[in-house]
Design a binder for these strands. Structure first.
Lengths: 228, 228
DNA sequence: GTAGGTTAAAAAATCGATTATCTTGTCTAA
DNA sequence: TTAGACAAGATAATCGATTTTTTAACCTAC
């Protein structure tokens, strides 16, 4: 394991199963770059760390493997997938295609409730204190913003794939200790995206989205290269 | 469970884990329409049917849920996802977009080895006896053909999504007892697809692919409507 | 009659221990 | 010296039993 993972909080709310809890936590830690790419998971250590038994842990690991955040090797357990320039390019390219498509469709379909949600999500994101909580709060709101943006695209499967690609992309973007980031610039783009969406200017919105993803890609690539 | 599942053969080759074996078998049965959509899985019955213990079975179910062939409800087990006209349309639409994209890229990238593989796959498919083995053999070769067609598209993630969409689509297309099908017509399209691919005519190939998917969609829709 | 509550049976989730497989270090023979 | 065989320890996969939760049937009070 990379460096000390933060001790995981026991569930607060209606408490799903142990399995789903450890799935969420592991997903968060995998996407957040808290594991070393390529490392083999020590199941017993995880068991202790996430405070669950073997069965729910293994169920979570199996789900994560099917989702693509882990790889399962024949009879030798689970590994964190390796990172590669080729894959990063692939993911970024797919994001361009799919989020572009989704955005155009969302602009065509979104109603006024969507407009309100979008404004709210953008506002929350802007207000977020990025220094807080190791940027976790900002990350969450950022994800929420992008989710909201494409939500009314009309395709459940498209949304699902986009979500998956986001998770994969973040494995690169969130490499290393913190988020220095070019937040100013990105926030400006978020703001403009909302503007264009409200104006229903699909073409311009898609172009800006392309640019936005491209900027994120540059951040991720830099992280990947510095990562070594 | 729908009607008597065929007793599952024990593994022949190098024998992966029990978990992976039951995953494969369950996936095949789910895609092949051997379960009733919406039904709740009786874990004990499955345990017996697939001749595995509880742990590997649950691990397989968890993987299938993450993959989208099952839905897992909070503390009440696993269900076969419901079918709906809206989802069928969604899946078909996504297939159009993604396989079209993949085909264009494959035609741009594919080398002469690909050409050979493609001819071989098409030939095998044509030769296949559709009456044999409840059409399983034909189904397998059909899947293989489409896989081969888009294989050199250059995107691992695109291929992954296409595979997933195929599985989902087949839940509709393979509803009901058998495959009467308009095989003549489909086989003709397969043949033409190979022709156009070899000629590197991306535009025409994509158009034909659109038409091909549309025809499959009509079959699937009919199945779904007759299914009731 | 119906809403709400209680409880027995069924099913899901989890645990603890066992079995099978892989890994590593050591030894032997060429 | 080194390739290969072997054994001991570590790890993965699986099993059987336990715990927890849901479901469904029944009962009671209004």
């Amino acid at each position: 394991m990379n460096n000390s993972l933060p001790k995981v909080a026991t569930p607060v709310g209606p408490a799903g199963t142990a399995s789903s809890r450890v799935f969420d936590n592991l997903r968060k830690d995998l996407v957040g770059g808290r594991f070393v790419a390529g490392e083999k998971l020590a199941i017993n250590a995880l068991k202790e760390h996430y405070q669950v038994g073997l069965s729910p842990l293994r169920e979570a690991l199996n789900k994560l493997a099917a989702y693509g955040l882990l790889v399962q090797e024949n009879q030798r357990g689970f590994r964190v997938p390796k990172l590669s320039r080729e894959e990063l390019d692939d993911i970024a390219h797919m994001r361009l295609e799919m989020e572009g498509m989704a955005l155009e469709r969302a602009i065509a379909n979104g109603d006024s409730l969507w407009e309100a949600d979008l404004l709210a999500a953008a506002h929350r994101l802007k207000r977020a204190d990025i220094t807080l909580d190791k940027g976790e709060e900002w990350e969450h709101l950022h994800t929420q913003f992008h989710r909201t943006l494409v939500a009314p695209c009309g395709s459940v499967w498209l949304l699902r794939f986009i979500e998956q690609l986001h998770d994969q992309f973040d494995r690169y973007r969130r490499l290393g200790p913190k988020m220095p980031t070019i937040r100013q610039e990105l926030d400006e783009q978020h703001h403009q995206l909302v503007e264009l969406a409200l104006q229903r200017d699909a073409k311009a919105a898609r172009e800006l989205m392309d640019d936005h993803i491209h900027k994120s890609y540059e951040v991720a690539l830099k992280r990947y290269q510095e990562h070594a």
